[in-house]
Write a protein that binds this DNA or RNA. Structure first.
Lengths: 109, 109
DNA sequence: GACGGTACTGTGCATCACGCACTACCGTGT
DNA sequence: ACACGGTAGTGCGTGATGCACAGTACCGTC
């Protein structure tokens, strides 16, 4: 399926949720999102989202050198990010509920 | 909440679902979507979506004069539209399941 | 020392919801 | 007559954002 459009406005929350669980660097966040089920997410989208969230003040950032390749830019969530996450999560659940009702079928899981 | 981005790619399904339930004209579809919970949906978005779906061959269209104002352009779903709706509905449920799992909270309803 | 995996940046494009302006029909009130 | 508010539709321009693609750079292995 093509999740490109469905992802709109949701990648933010997804990335926040992943980072909130544990600090991570871009390449790693991509893998975690894909493992979680968002298999078609583009790497450039994730890097862009991380940068955007950082610019917005929702994330902290620090660089860690690596033995297995180039340096890794880790991102961590801060208080503002957590607030954003909570708000977005609430929005998502409301929205998902509305949509599921509208589509007239039970939720998966 | 600002559903603008969340609506991306979902307005299609929502409109298809509403029209599948019963033929409707633009202005009416807007009201039905708002009543269903998508309170912030813009009228231009719905008109645009209806035209897009019609161009894509998912909807039929016929004009009906009205006593209470200008003519109404009714839209009805056809076989292709129903197929599209089913596919999108399935996509939505998969996606919603993935997201809800990722956000780590129960679904609303 | 070419290759594949890792890791990040930057540019440009396509999709799509939306605001806004405009046209147009109707009934009611002044 | 005329303005106004509700109904109904079209078209234009804008903004947000996911993504493809190209480029840079580091590492280990064959």
């Amino acid at each position: 399926m093509d999740t490109t459009q469905l992802l709109k406005g949701v990648l933010d929350v997804a990335v926040l949720a992943v980072v909130a669980h544990e600090d991570g660097y871009g390449y790693d966040v991509v893998r975690r999102l894909r493992t979680a089920g968002l298999e078609e997410v583009g790497d450039a989208s994730v890097y862009g989202t991380l940068r955007r969230l950082y610019s917005a003040g929702a994330l902290t950032s620090y660089v860690v050198p690596s033995d297995e390749g180039p340096h890794r830019k880790y991102y961590g969530i801060n208080a503002q990010g957590r607030a954003t996450l909570d708000a977005h999560r609430k929005d998502w659940h409301e929205f998902a509920g509305t949509m599921s009702r509208l589509l007239g079928t039970e939720d998966v899981r």
